[in-house]
Nucleic acid binder design. Structure first.
Lengths: 161, 161
DNA sequence: TTATTATGGATACTATAGGTCCATATTAAT
DNA sequence: ATTAATATGGACCTATAGTATCCATAATAA
């Protein structure tokens, strides 16, 4: 299991856009040369990001891309979910198997607090818990937080001299 | 990005083995019928688990599988790493791109505390942090913890009656 | 009007997941 | 020792997703 290269490209592209904020739009040429990816492939990815409202795009001369909202409102989770999709990280394949049903039977504890019909297998339960933790972390980290960190490094560098 | 079905099968199989602990070995027939997976495919998975020392296997009449160590010493992380591999969840694809090098330059702060040559891109850094969180969670949850939870549910059920 | 740029469709290649089948080796029971 | 049961590993197949390219089209600014 791995994140796709597209996610890598998307994240790096957004950091680049965030960095060039006050300038005009950034064209696919500049982006692709900065990231070292082909224009054709990267444009597919940018298109996805646009469809999901992460970036804006204008065609024509001097066109290009820009962030659709402030960089501190674009979380890693947002980006990942656009590129990788919003499916669960883990799903039990055969919910009708003996083993699954055994682990999914709602005990008394569950029946009191949770809505009926949930019927979550105990293996799923652990995995979904893991996913929630992951999501929380990824939501707390934004494009802006990368920019901040980069700036911090840079200014330390200057102080040394 | 999703966990593979094999991971699902492996986890459910191990829970089954943990549950049948005091009995003898559990054959692939019983396992596959309990999980609703073909014997041929499941045996591949069990073979992997054996190679990594998660289960023991004995061939021959009345042979089968059993846990190689106590269920509380088999974490979800152990199982997942056997099945999914131990590669990083995220890797920057072109470490030579302008964008990557910009985010990888080690500032003064980094140079003091960390070993040189690490040169971790700031995007990678966030993603690796996410992975570590995920791993920690998955390491804290074991096959035994699923068995415990199942037992809890069951005993509550009994009390009700 | 023209040059530039993004968009979307079609296509192709590759790797991996998911799955089957069979020959072989190992073991317990007879 | 023989036999039946069981796990193992190799070969093979298929479907799908990821990666990538190319081209025709639409939209925009100069």
């Amino acid at each position: 299991m791995q994140f796709s290269k597209s996610t890598d490209y998307a994240l790096h592209a957004l950091v680049h856009l965030g960095h060039s904020e006050r300038c005009n739009n950034v064209g696919i040429k500049e982006l692709s040369s900065a990231l070292g990816v082909s224009e054709s492939y990267l444009s597919k990815i940018m298109s996805k990001l646009r469809q999901d409202g992460i970036v804006r795009a204008v065609p024509g001369v001097n066109g290009g891309y820009e962030l659709a909202r402030p960089a501190d409102q674009i979380s890693f989770l947002d980006v990942i979910q656009v590129i990788e999709g919003r499916q669960q990280l883990f799903e039990c394949s055969n919910s009708s198997s003996r083993q699954h049903r055994l682990l999914a039977e709602e005990g008394a504890a569950g029946r009191d607090q949770k809505r009926p019909g949930k019927n979550e297998c105990l293996v799923e339960k652990v995995m979904n818990g893991a996913e929630q933790h992951l999501h929380q972390y990824l939501q707390e980290h934004t494009i802006q937080s990368v920019l901040d960190e980069a700036f911090k490094r840079c200014s330390h560098e200057v102080n040394k001299k």
